[in-house]
Design a protein around this nucleic acid. Structure first.
Length: 481
RNA sequence: GGUGCGAUGGCCGAGUGGUUAGGCAGAGGUCUGCAAAACCUCGUACAGCGGUUCAAUUCCGCUUCGCACCUCCA
């Protein structure tokens, strides 16, 4: 049984799907006006983790992630580039999917774009108008009336006086009736240029929050299981989504809301507005891999702020090499045997610890501790030659089972079995002869030469083991770049 | 001002009213021709001050510091 933290109740709750067919999950997606930074990807990695944990528990999943392709920033970007909106957003959408693949983030079932769902939004706004929860202002905009919806604030736990009291100086560009009201529909403005649709309330474009409510209900129904996003979306975005959806349907919108904390750099939030962010592409160009970045993102609990450092990436690289060594050794020990039915006791214990950690509100640090317990025990058993091939195969399958959630064991490993170039093969052969002749000076010299060619050689009982010197070495890339 | 969250050993980062988190880095050791890998051992970690308790890093209060949200933000 999974337990997850519900932002609505502010407590951990047992997770039970509303319907047996599939867990319905809505995950707030990117605004496609730029390359996403790794702070953004912390959220998407968290959502991927949630998805994988659900699958790990045997649930089927119906996940929707929106693409916000119309808002102030996309419109501004398109204007500055002098191209139509879709032309501007298309490459960022493509880049987003490439980045997801780089991080081994599983694809959602549906990626609806806001601009493809105007009818759903207009219908939703219409219902809110009918119910007296929205009003049209003189400038052709439509606003949600917070004062007409008493439940407003139940997610953020804000009351209306708080809404007004502290707020920053408001930039009242629109004619709202009261301060907390938010736009469902924005009347056409000169800045919008060609970006406009017809509506019963005049030409304009959707407000900031309506797309998620409309598209979530379009694909997941009026009430569904899980809705996630970064903590900064909790208010106002998610609060407004609830108001829009529940205001229109009179039914509960989402059973459980989950939010992940921010990624920090030097103790501060990594964000576009602060300009202190790295895109995934920045890190790749510095020599890090998506696999290593994924590991770093997995190594903290999603509800805790995570301080991003290059040292953490360094540690990730070495830690993953440790896992790789173990998996390779297990594969060799298994020798293609069919896995035995029973796991060794220590592996069964690791499996239990791993499962309990994942199901305890996605406690990945604990889950990784279980992974490393499995690594250590596997290495010990192999050192003592106490692991039968069938047992090694069974343990190996446990690694794969864990990898359903982690997505970091098999994924993105450097190719270490590539063809050995002639100059490498020649030195390996020469070194074997030198060792046989106990000519250690020659053997050491050849090992150094191989290292400079990018190949690592290790002497084992069975003879020399040669591997390409890829991701397994300690990083020098950071300091060099 | 309002609302939350946090402060753990050199770094990252879990957790717990009394028993090893884990990874990385460091020290020592075993194995090895040497090295690597692997395994073993080690470091008097829980911001400060009070309180509750047989016992607190863990509960309560206060203080200090930090972060976030309060209509751009994952």
């Amino acid at each position: 049984m999974m337990q997850v933290y519900n932002s609505l109740s502010r407590s951990k709750e047992p997770f039970t799907p509303l319907t047996p067919d599939a867990v319905r999950l809505y995950t707030c997606g990117p605004t496609v006006y730029n390359f996403a930074h790794i702070g953004n990807f912390r959220a998407y990695t968290f959502e991927d983790l949630l998805r994988r944990a659900l699958l790990f528990n045997g649930y089927r999943v119906m996940q929707v992630m929106n693409l916000t392709d119309v808002d102030d920033k996309t419109i501004r970007g398109a204007r500055q580039a002098g191209v139509p909106l879709k032309t501007f957003t298309a490459p960022f959408i493509q880049a987003f999917f490439e980045d997801l693949a780089t991080l081994n983030i599983q694809r959602a079932e549906v990626y609806p774009a806001a601009t493809d769902h105007l009818p759903e939004m207009l219908e939703l706004i219409g219902k809110l108008m009918e119910r007296g929860l929205a009003y049209r202002s003189d400038d052709g905009s439509v606003y949600f009336s917070v004062s007409a919806w008493p439940a407003y604030g139940k997610l953020a736990h804000l009351d209306r006086s708080a809404l007004r009291a502290g707020a920053r100086v408001s930039h009242d560009e629109y004619e709202k009736e009261s301060y907390g009201d938010f736009a469902l529909w924005k009347g056409w403005d000169e800045q919008d240029g060609e970006v406009a649709w017809d509506s019963p309330w005049g030409r304009g474009r959707p407000g900031w929050h309506i797309e998620c409510s409309a598209m979530a209900m379009r694909y997941l129904g009026e009430t569904f299981d899980l809705h996630t996003g970064g903590i900064d979306n909790l208010f106002p975005h998610h609060e407004n989504e609830i108001a829009q959806a529940e205001g229109a349907t009179g039914k509960p919108f989402v059973a459980c809301w989950m939010h992940c904390a921010h990624l920090r750099v030097n103790g501060e939030k990594m964000s576009k507005s602060l300009g202190n962010f790295f895109t995934l592409r920045d890190l790749l160009s510095r020599g890090w891999t998506g696999r290593e970045i994924r590991y770093v993102l997995l190594n903290g609990h999603y509800r805790q702020p995570l301080n991003f450092t290059f040292e953490a990436l360094d540690a990730a690289r070495v830690s993953l090499a440790r896992v790789d060594e173990c998996v390779d050794a297990l594969a060799a020990a298994a020798g293609g045997s069919a896995p035995s039915d029973a796991l060794p006791d220590w592996a069964a214990a690791a499996r239990t610890a791993f499962t309990e950690a994942v199901n305890d509100d996605l406690n990945l640090p604990e889950a990784l501790a279980a992974l490393f317990a499995l690594v250590r025990e596997s290495n010990t058993a192999m050192r003592d030659a106490a692991l039968a091939p069938q047992s090694a195969a069974a343990v190996l399958s446990l690694f794969d089972r864990m990898d359903m959630v982690l997505g970091v064991i098999r994924f993105g490993r450097a190719d270490r079995d590539g063809e050995m170039p002639p100059e490498v093969a020649e030195r390996v052969r020469a070194r074997a002869e030198a060792r046989a002749a106990r000519d250690w000076h020659a053997a050491d010299r050849l090992r150094d030469e191989l290292a400079s060619l990018g190949w690592e050689v290790r002497d084992a009982k069975e003879g020399q083991k040669v591997k390409r010197n890829g991701a397994m070495t300690r990083s020098t890339a950071v300091t060099a770049s």
